[in-house]
Computed example of a mutant assay.
Amino acid sequence: MIENVIFDMNGVITDDEHLHELATQKVFETIGLTITPEIYRQYCLGRTDASAFCDMIKDFQLKNIEVASIISEKSIVYQQLVADNLKVYPGVIMLIERLYQKYPLAITTSSTFEEVKTVLNELYLENRFKTVVSANDVQRGKPDPEPYVLTAEKLGVLPENCLVIEDSENGIRSAIAAGMKCIAITNTENRDKLTLAHYIIEDYSEITNELLESL
């Protein structure tokens, strides 16, 4: 039985993956690496900046680069971009408000805490989520199960009683490995990348009470 609903943020609530990509491009451009859309998708989509940037620094043999410094710079650029360009997916705010009436809600995201705080403040959603697990809280980001396992611990619930809403293959793998149910939405990935989820939707109106009760 579903007792809690956990939202990923980027690609699920916020239509801002392009802003993360642009911020990443801007920061790495200053150290001599051009981040193409292919590189961003391969290394960054659905992962923490710490994991993605460490892998890029190693694979592209970037010297004398402090990962923490790059993460901080990217976060600052992202927050500047999102202040004027934040978009949300159609129907997701209505879904959050509807689910909030029945379920404790949480956010589990690969974004930093400061990025999450900026977004929730912009959307006036600070009090809708019982807990937030960000990249700052984990050693191993998605697709490792740690982020969702920690979310269940912070909520004080069993993973099998949690439903996750995700948009990326890495996010789905994390939720499933944690023992949770997962609905995937085709906001950022093709359907064939989301087949590990328990259910795939194209619009938030498809998340009905009947669907939740059937999972």
Rank of each mutant, 00 (worst) to 15 (best):
D192F: 08
S72T: 14
I70E: 06
I207V: 06
V67H: 02
L95R: 01
T118K: 15
T14P: 08
K74A: 06
A152N: 04
P37C: 07
E115F: 06
E97K: 15
C44K: 12
L123V: 03
Y204D: 03
P145H: 01
Y199L: 10
S174Y: 02
N64W: 01
A178H: 03
V138P: 13
Y78V: 08
V27W: 01
L158Y: 03
I31K: 03
I200S: 04
V133N: 03
V92W: 07
D167Q: 02
S134F: 08
A106I: 15
I176K: 14
T24L: 12
L196S: 05
I2E: 06
L155V: 07
N4W: 03
D137E: 13
S174T: 00
C44A: 11
F7G: 07
D16T: 13
I207A: 06
F129E: 06
E38W: 08
V164G: 04
V5L: 11
T48G: 03
G91E: 09
R191N: 10
E153A: 13
E126W: 08
F113E: 15
G32C: 09
D55H: 12
T34G: 02
Q25R: 08
A23L: 09
N85Q: 15
R140K: 15
L150T: 06
N64Q: 07
D8A: 00
I200G: 03
I165D: 00
R128Q: 15
A175C: 07
V119H: 04
V119R: 02
S110W: 04
H198K: 07
E29C: 04
Y43A: 12
Y89L: 09
E97Q: 14
A175R: 04
Q80V: 09
I176D: 05
V82E: 11
S214Q: 10
E66Q: 06
P159I: 01
A52V: 00
Y199T: 12
T186L: 09
I165C: 00
G156R: 13
P90Q: 09
T118M: 14
M94T: 15
E38S: 08
D59Q: 07
V133F: 08
R173V: 02
D144Y: 13
T24F: 11
R128M: 15
H198S: 05
N10T: 13
A178Y: 05
H198L: 01
L215E: 02
A50R: 15
F53A: 04
D167P: 00
Q79D: 11
N64T: 04
P159Q: 01
T24G: 00
I65W: 03
E213A: 15
I70V: 12
T131M: 10
F113I: 13
Q79I: 12
Y78Q: 03
P143M: 03
G141R: 10
Y148D: 06
V77Q: 09
G11R: 11
L81M: 03
T109C: 00
L19D: 07
V119F: 07
A52K: 05
